[in-house]
Design a protein around this nucleic acid. Structure first.
Lengths: 165, 165
DNA sequence: AAGATAGTGGTGAATTGTGGGTAACTTTCC
DNA sequence: GGAAAGTTACCCACAATTCACCACTATCTT
């Protein structure tokens, strides 16, 4: 039995703007963290060194490449702000969103409010989350993930069944 | 219950991109493992030498050829991250996923976190799992399989009834 | 038996991550 | 309005790691 596969498109690399992997870096005294070189390369050429940092839904920092952030911006724009909860939601995301560019060594500077929100002191754990980047205090991450896994283990298993192949 | 596989003549053709068989290789001091030549040949030409390694559902390393991984990646990308458990799930998979291309000798490098997760030290047992590749510490595999076979022997038999012809 | 292919180990060059220093710009206070 | 202090951004240099390549040995094939 033969199965013929379609020939592959030219660009059979990982999607651009796809972030995976974890990296342990340090936050220096000036509030700078390194962005992993792999992530910098993952970005499409044009906006190579511009990100938008904002507070995550979890107590961590979310970093979007400009293209992804634009999508979010559009969605927020379309969200009517008649209801109070909508306004609060928009406020949450918008108020702390700060565009920031990598310096020549590939670092970005986190604003003091993001640092205190995410409680990152010295060690910064950077995680690729497919379309965005998360920066965590490692301790915090552990407790959050453990809590979720215990409380929602059933949901977690069903997700794994559905998606992992 | 044992199933014996036919030895393959030169051009005996399994489906392309189908991995079977087991191989005993070694993990060197730099975290490199060889990918069996058969597996490399099994891949369609274009993306021959890029894989994505990630942590398995068992304590082993899973290695996907790029085409298979992209399916997972797309699922993850479409998963809304409004709920905490979704984010935890994405994180689990994405944080350990490392794209890696074979070097000229046909090896890929495993990240330290994957090595410690799978507890592979020197001997690496590589198993073809149809659409992906597993890398095990041989000791670990033995205990895991034995445990499963004892606990779920009924399920195992019914699976065998259903599938083996 | 000889050539080809496959697997293992090591080395050197290039890249990456970290700390610090200096210049420019802002803010504040006199 | 001007000077001083503080803040921000940019740049340089060193250390550590990574990656690409080379060479050797073992195994398989003809």
């Amino acid at each position: 039995m033969w199965v013929t596969f379609p020939t592959f498109q030219k660009n059979m690399t990982l999607n651009k703007d796809t972030f995976t992997g974890e990296y342990q870096y340090s936050l220096d005294s000036k509030g700078r963290v390194n962005i992993p070189a792999k992530f910098r390369q993952a970005l499409s050429k044009k906006n190579q060194n511009t990100f938008v940092a904002t507070r995550g839904q979890d107590p961590c920092v979310w970093i979007y490449p400009l293209t992804e952030w634009k999508k979010i911006e559009d969605e927020l724009r379309n969200l009517s702000s008649v209801s109070g909860i909508h306004r609060t939601f928009i406020r949450q995301i918008a108020r702390s969103a700060t565009p920031s560019t990598c310096d020549k060594q590939g670092r970005i500077t986190l604003s003091p409010s993001l640092i205190s929100f995410s409680q990152i002191d010295k060690n910064a754990l950077i995680i690729g989350m497919i379309n965005k980047i998360e920066i965590w205090n490692p301790e915090t991450l552990k407790t959050v993930d453990e809590k979720n896994m215990i409380e929602d283990s059933i949901e977690l298993n069903s997700l794994a069944d559905k998606i992992v192949i």
